[in-house]
Nucleic acid binder design. Structure first.
Lengths: 359, 359
DNA sequence: TCCTTTCATGTAAACGATTGCATTACCTCC
DNA sequence: GGAGGTAATGCAATCGTTTACATGAAAGGA
């Protein structure tokens, strides 16, 4: 049986109250006593019971991280970022992986983190109003990535800006027929990121005076395979795009695969730009919009620490910048296209040629 | 203030003991009473306090998962597998990400999961004898992936077998000069997997009568970049390999990148085979040794469930099979090599031509 | 009818800390 | 020398369950 605080108290010849204070480094304990307690604890190899401690104090030393897919590159990176700063502050991570819809529902029906966590971090999950309220009703600080929950801390990238940059990059290269492979639009829960990006895509095209063509939007589901089929769909159009914006690198990889299998090359036949700057993007020489992934996790964790220490008054909100990374899969549109010799108008000034362009 | 079990007891006009029993579905509670309790709990939107419950019962409803790198593909997949089965049984996951050595040490110095978890799952972490004992002394069931801890449950692939298959595949294609890019040998903690694989590689070569050449072993560190440099190192040898076995797909990707930059192609110039069947392997048409990743996680979780239910007596140990997936980066050795026209002896019977060969 | 069982429920003692509120002892300063 | 302040410590209530044991009622058996 493990030693309890009473054993330590007895051995150090003080009360349990003093042991508790000494062990936690609280003031009003004489140096001599503190040492005696420390020694006693050491000798008994005593460790506080986290549950007893939580029960008595109300603190748990634990932060819940709620996300859709731990096994996707993006989320695992963010979790690593979160972990690095939380761990440094002796906070444990309780993981809730809600990708599966059943699991998602069950989670909100039972609310397992209730009274189990000091704070919550929510990654990119689309939540109904009721669900958001459930979380808020837990009355712990919440930091949210990507989405928005009233009264919570926020970290996100500027999706509209990132998308605009990507699409403008293509326009600047002279492309007029620009496809988009978008993600997760099918999920009934309604992830917001894809919606924002789709909207930005349409807006930029409109601003450039390019007519809207619904055929140029193909749904992927953020996976390589679905990106591949989406690309196949786009390329089978009577008037296929000369450039494609995939809203995740993974889908761009799929798109490149499809092209490869059809004997097409980027950027000669079709330009492709992704989003994320996935570690494999460099490998495949994919032009993309980079976002600092782990860093966003660190920010979220830092917000939680701030909230927990009560040092800051109001929930803050930070938007981290994205940047265009120009690599080899995007290039100038061919001036004269075989099928449509009618639209050879040159695009605006071309992009700089530096391989990596800060936005 | 949230409702406590006392409130529920009052409202249902029973004792707290009965409430506890009714809520947990224990026997010896009349149907009428149970319903009354359930209703009362519902009306007060009561939820048990996990800490109080843990303190009183000793159970925590939580499993600790200890791993080196959440943000690496392999581990995040395994975690997803673990999560899927644990979640289904209402067990929470406490994540311990010990990649950083400092974090690792601190972890074993403080043992945060002590009394916080009902069981532990350890992924591939190299542990000193003392560290293993620390874990064992927690007196909870432990399931281990990859490594071995006496008295614990085990899941692993047969690394020696997988490696042998890979190297034999190359030998069967007629290669004699076969390099290996190995991982994490530099880590002072001594991950065992790389050691086993390196040994198997040497053994197979010896069995085939191929003399040992230390220059053909280059250290990567399981990352793309280090795989790339390792390949650069191998290719700069006076007598470079005609085939390379990289012990992770990631490093194989790096190797391919290096080749690409040097204007070399696989398998024409050098054959490359990886290990894992990473999702990107198909994309890059990489021949590899596939292992079922998420599945191993599920197995680990299942072992924990078995242990927890006490249904099984002895810790079990399961070895899951790997299989050779032949894709486009491996091919027959050129019979006459420019530099060494002296070794044109044809290899043994070539591999089958099916793209995916069960082992 | 009386004695066992069996079932439903209640009582109260853990579980192992934290913390508000004394209490004590020792200074310091008129 | 007494009033008042401060630092160190102890007392005991509290956190919210679970569970061994006791109790009582109803049912079954001889």
């Amino acid at each position: 049986m493990a030693a309890s605080i009473i054993d330590v108290a007895r051995r150090a010849e003080v009360s349990t109250a003093t042991v508790s204070r000494a062990l936690r480094g609280l003031p009003n304990v004489s140096e001599a006593t503190r040492e005696r307690v420390l020694r006693a604890a050491e000798e008994l190899s005593y460790a506080v019971s986290p549950h007893a401690s939580s029960l008595a104090s109300g603190r748990t030393g634990t932060v819940g991280v709620i996300l859709p897919f731990v096994n996707r590159w993006f989320y695992s990176q963010v979790v690593a970022g979160i972990d690095s700063v939380l761990r440094a502050n002796d906070l444990d991570i309780l993981l809730y992986n809600l990708g599966d819809e059943r699991v998602h529902e069950r989670f909100f029906a039972r609310m397992p983190p209730r009274r189990r966590v000091d704070a919550l971090i929510v990654l990119n999950l689309p939540l109904s109003a009721t669900e958001s309220e459930s979380l808020v009703s837990l009355e712990v600080p919440i930091a949210v990535l990507g989405t928005r929950i009233p009264g919570c801390w926020h970290v996100s990238i500027d999706n509209a800006e990132g998308t605009s940059t990507a699409v403008r990059h293509l326009i600047n290269l002279g492309h007029r027929r620009i496809g988009m492979i978008s993600g997760a639009l099918g999920d009934p829960r309604g992830f917001t990121t894809p919606i924002v990006r789709q909207h930005a895509y349409r807006t930029v095209l409109a601003q450039a005076g390019i007519p809207y063509d619904p055929d140029l939007e193909a749904p992927g589901n953020l996976t390589i395979d679905e990106g591949a089929s989406a690309m196949a769909q786009l390329l089978s159009l009577p008037d296929p795009p000369t450039a494609v914006f995939a809203e995740s690198d993974q889908m761009a990889f799929g798109a490149l695969r499809t092209m490869g299998r059809m004997g097409l090359r980027a950027p000669d036949d079709v330009s492709v730009i992704g989003f994320d700057n996935h570690e494999t993007a460099e490998l495949l020489d994919l032009t993309t919009i980079a976002q600092p992934v782990a860093y966003q996790g660190e920010l979220l964790a830092q917000q939680i620490l701030d909230a927990l220490s009560g040092s800051s008054e109001e929930p803050a909100q930070v938007v981290v910048p994205t940047r265009l990374v120009v690599r080899g899969t995007t290039g100038a549109a061919r001036v004269a296209r075989p099928r449509h010799p009618s639209s050879p108008r040159p695009g605006p000034e071309p992009d700089q040629h530096s391989r990596t362009t800060a936005r």
